[in-house]
């Protein structure tokens, strides 16, 4: 095992981590702000992959433009879903269970709609021009596309930090996560905030889907794998903890990357082992100090 091997696995881990973070941060944001667990969050990742495929591979739109268009479209779908359905069951007895049930129905519906529109065969998406090559370090190659994803991921983290810490909607979202009612009393439109947060979070998930499409195959049913990985990330980082999700994603991304290198068949077991250890020793999440973000 030499340094270049470690380096290339680390880059691969960061790539996985970035994609995971884009999904998991949305999940944790929705939960933090609205106490809604969006079980269908992985499905937004999946439709993101299909939208990206549609824009880029079918209609020939520029990859980066497709990425942005996907973000907008998936975000709109997310907002619509929150506005039309989830909003109806806020505050109902046994709310948590019914939210999960409802978002579970979304998974079933979205999965089948995707099959109905795009068929069941695998789709693939080419890497964007300029990012098809690879760097050579020693005798290993590091695809430039991975670096692009990592770069976009960092940009997203910085942007998210800026929105949450420096802008009024961000502060409202953070305040809403502490106390929904008080924010309402202060004259902030809480339902609207929730819809917007839902849109932002699903848009991030959708863009992650497009970004992942050239690396992984695009298939219906991809949502559930992603949601379970994100879930592990979110639990490790602490539910509702934005930065915890970032650190958790990096941890799980790296563990997965190195796990794949050493025991490809059983790589997923490693993240579960971490999950079990966290659950035993620090069930509130590794990175939770304060309750919010």
């Amino acid at each position: 095992m030499d340094a270049t091997f470690i380096f290339s696995q680390a880059v691969s881990g960061l790539t996985i981590a970035t994609l995971l973070f884009l999904v998991a941060s949305g999940l944790t944001l929705i939960f933090g702000v609205g106490k809604v667990f969006n079980f269908a969050h992985g499905s937004f990742y999946m439709i993101g992959a299909y939208f990206g495929y549609q824009f880029s591979a079918v209609w020939g739109t520029n990859f980066f433009l497709s990425l942005i268009l996907t973000g907008i479209c998936v975000g709109l779908v997310g907002m619509l879903m929150e506005f039309l359905f989830l909003r109806r069951i806020y505050g109902r007895a046994n709310e948590g269970g019914f939210q999960i049930l409802m978002t579970y129905c979304f998974i079933l519906i979205i999965d089948d709609l995707v099959k109905l529109i795009w068929g069941t065969e695998y789709k693939s998406l080419a890497r964007p021009p300029g990012f098809q090559g690879a760097f050579q370090i020693g005798d290993t190659f590091i695809p430039t596309y991975n670096l692009l994803i990592i770069g976009i991921g960092f940009a997203a983290v910085i942007l998210a930090w800026y929105i949450l810490a420096r802008t009024r909607p961000g502060r409202v979202a953070r305040a809403a996560s502490v106390d929904r009612e008080i924010v309402g009393v202060l004259g902030v439109n809480v339902p609207l905030t929730m819809t917007l947060v839902f849109g932002l979070a699903t848009a991030m998930g959708g863009m992650a889907g497009t970004l992942a499409a050239p690396l992984r195959t695009v298939t219906p049913g991809a949502g559930i794998e992603v949601i379970i990985d994100s879930l592990i990330v979110v639990v490790i980082g602490g539910m509702g903890n934005f930065w915890g999700a970032w650190l958790g994603a990096i941890l799980i991304g790296e563990v997965t990357a190195f796990g794949v290198a050493f025991a490809p068949k059983w790589a997923t077991l490693f993240s579960f082992m971490i999950l079990v250890i966290v659950l035993i020793f620090k069930p509130e999440g590794l990175f939770t100090r304060r309750k919010v973000m």
Partner: peptide, 25 residues
């Protein structure tokens, strides 16, 4: 013992995660 400590949505999602683990194995 492991999943009941955390309750609520965590309970739901962890039971899901462990069942999926068994499925994968």
């Amino acid at each position: 013992l492991l999943v009941i400590r955390v309750g609520g949505v965590y309970f739901t999602m962890l039971t899901l995660a462990f069942a999926q683990l068994a499925w994968q194995i």
